[in-house]
């Protein structure tokens, strides 16, 4: 990092751009995250709007994945992880006493970096969520949910003849779409995606990106990505993280064509990262 950039980072006390939106689905204010003694996230304010795709970009270890995982309390499984500040979903405090993490995760779904289908059939993979949450009254309803979710994930035509085949028998891209279908099947309000295409080839990636764009109609989507091109292609807003701080957030076009902060510009123009 050039020394001027280091200075710029040290001086950084507030986020450049517009972290808030009017129709916010999720809101975070003054969020700090610690792993034991080590602080991973510093004072992040960020909104995720209805029906938008917000991309989170930044160099490795910048805290974007950590931040994402706090949004549905996936970090609860790590004992040393501590979160301070406010995070809310439709105004409800995520870390409040009366909010149940199980319910939260049903409302805020997540798709992971590596496709992780369960060791079950394709059908059972998608039916898993509805089954545990008791979303389907009978077999016919469940069938509807499964077929509908697979359709939305653009996978149905490819697998309709082999719903009983194991989920792991699919190709990498298909597996990831299966995981997306699995997430949609619970009818969440927000979908978090943690580098969903990093393990996929370009063709599979293009297919998923298309899908994300379609899904925007129904869900608020937050996606962490390593690829700036991907962020530019799929997102409406873009947030740039650097060493645990949210440097800049704005409309994607603004961030990529006219970055306000020196660090963002360095990253976008490929000077580091």
């Amino acid at each position: 990092m050039p020394s001027s950039a280091q200075e710029a980072f040290d001086k950084l006390t507030h986020t450049v751009g517009t972290p808030t939106v009017d129709n916010a689905k999720m809101q975070t204010r003054n969020v700090n995250v610690f792993y034991g003694e080590k602080q991973a996230i510093y004072d992040v304010d960020l909104d995720i709007g209805q029906n938008e795709v917000i991309a989170m970009i930044g160099p490795s270890g910048c805290g974007k994945s950590t931040f994402l995982r706090c949004l549905n309390r996936m970090n609860d499984t790590i004992p040393s992880c501590r979160v301070t500040g406010q995070m809310s979903l439709d105004g409800e405090d995520l870390y409040g006493a009366d909010l149940d993490p199980v319910l939260l995760r049903a409302r805020v779904g997540m798709v992971f970096q590596k496709p992780n289908p369960f060791a079950k059939s394709i059908y059972d993979n998608v039916a898993y969520g509805p089954r545990i949450h008791g979303l389907a009254g009978n077999r016919a309803e469940l069938d509807d949910i499964v077929v509908d979710s697979l359709r939305k994930a653009g996978l149905y035509d490819e697998v309709k003849d082999r719903l009983d085949a194991p989920g792991t028998s699919l190709s990498g891209g298909q597996q990831q779409r299966l995981c997306i279908a699995r997430t949609i099947a619970v009818s969440p309000e927000v979908i978090l995606m943690d580098e969903p295409c990093s393990a996929l080839d370009p063709i599979a990636t293009a297919r998923i990106e298309e899908l994300i764009d379609e899904l925007r109609e129904n869900f608020a989507i937050a996606i962490v990505t390593h690829s700036m091109q991907q962020a530019a292609r799929v997102s409406q807003r873009c947030a740039y993280f650097h060493l645990g701080k949210l440097v800049e957030v704005d409309d994607t076009s603004t961030v990529f064509t006219n970055p306000q902060h020196e660090l963002t510009e360095n990253y976008i123009t490929g000077r580091f990262g």
Binding site: L103, M110, N116, I132, T183, V186
Partner: peptide, 8 residues
């Protein structure tokens, strides 16, 4: 993680 992410 996949399972927890779905709210299990």
């Amino acid at each position: 993680d996949g399972s927890y992410g779905l709210g299990a």
